[in-house]
């Protein structure tokens, strides 16, 4: 019965309703509807209506703002800090990660410290750097570095530990020169780990950055949402919150997913899907747990 029903071509309204694109567009509409209902029935003074928030957002998009900087300036300032901080984290993390991967004592010496630093909440980074450096660019950038480095280190370390020995052996048997082995075997095999570091380090650096801007800066996206909060403008806070969500989606779907699809085009389709839909942190968590377990194994067995 069910098979027969499924194989019959559906009428067009049913087809549209069943389409996954419809589902995707339906979600924000449902949220808006629920929000509107809550606004009408809860009658709290503070919950702004969707219309009010959307009109605030529209003003911001047109660069008509009461805040010190426009939407674009705020996000540009933050993005600039994020990139600078993360590049530094990448450079330092790469060196330390490689050293840990290649020299056992260095690994033992630093591993626990790295795991502890990874667990430091970004709030802690923001508050401490805020007290140490005061207002300015330093605290946010150092926060990004501090948050990003352990991600880079752990992933580079994983990458080195997982280097494909059998492919190096193969290259050796065919007398392939070292430079070509580095380019065609070593670097591509490190790519997934490098990319993971990039993606999750960047996402977490971003979270830390906006916090640091709240406590130790006078501009940027984090500072601006705090500005609306302090001004008790609920529509400002909610509007900016939605900008954050949009920014995250654009970064994730528009940049990282595309780059990942290109970089990993050699992966069979099934695997690719897993990579695409895998969740940043859950994945890294698994990787970190694996790393911890492997380290433990090396100790006991």
């Amino acid at each position: 019965m069910a098979v027969a029903a499924a194989s019959r071509p559906a009428a067009w309204p049913a087809r549209i309703i069943r389409s996954r694109r419809t589902a995707r567009f339906l979600f924000p509409l449902v949220v808006l509807a629920v929000w509107q209902l809550a606004f009408m029935f809860l009658e709290t003074a503070v919950l702004p209506s969707p219309g009010k928030v959307l009109s605030f957002m529209w003003d911001e998009v047109r660069m008509d703002t009461l805040s010190r900087h426009t939407l674009y300036q705020s996000f540009a300032i933050s993005l600039g800090r994020l990139i600078v901080g993360f590049l530094i984290a990448l450079a330092i993390g790469l060196v330390i990660g490689l050293l840990m991967g290649l020299v056992r004592p260095i690994e033992y010496f630093l591993y626990d410290v790295v795991v502890v630093v990874l667990a430091v909440p970004s709030l802690v980074w923001a508050l401490i750097t805020g007290l140490l450096f005061g207002l300015g660019n330093n605290a946010p950038i150092v926060t990004v570095i501090g948050v990003g480095i352990p991600f880079v280190i752990l992933n580079v370390l994983e990458g080195v530990k997982n280097s494909p020995k059998e492919l190096f052996d193969m290259s050796r048997a065919f007398r392939v020169p070292r430079r070509r082995v580095v380019r065609h075997v070593l670097l591509p095999s490190l790519m997934p780990f490098f990319f993971a570091a990039l993606r999750y380090g960047f996402a977490n650096g971003w979270k830390g950055l906006v916090l640091a801007e709240v406590f130790a800066s006078t501009n940027g996206a984090g500072w601006t949402i705090r500005y609306w909060y302090d001004a008790h403008r609920a529509q400002g806070v909610l509007g900016y919150a939605l900008f954050f969500v949009l920014f995250a989606l654009i970064l994730e779907r528009g940049v990282f997913e595309r780059v990942s699809r290109y970089v990993f085009r050699w992966r069979p389709q099934a695997q690719l899907e897993v990579v695409e839909e895998a969740v940043p942190e859950a994945k890294l968590k698994v990787a970190t747990v694996e790393a911890e377990r492997m380290a433990a194994d090396r100790g006991t067995g």
Binding site: R20, R21, A23, R24, L26, F27, P28, V46, S122, L123, A203, W206, K207, V210, L211, V214, G222, I225, R226, Y229, H232, A234, V237, L238, Y240, A241, F244, V245, A248, L249, L251, E252, R253, V279, P280, E281
Partner: peptide, 24 residues
């Protein structure tokens, strides 16, 4: 597909944003 964007964005949205929204 319905939940996909929500799940992705809740994971990349900074905690600060949640804190301020529920605060206000």
């Amino acid at each position: 597909a319905f939940f996909k964007d929500w799940v992705t964005s809740t994971m990349t949205t900074p905690g600060l944003v949640y804190a301020l929204v529920v605060g206000v």
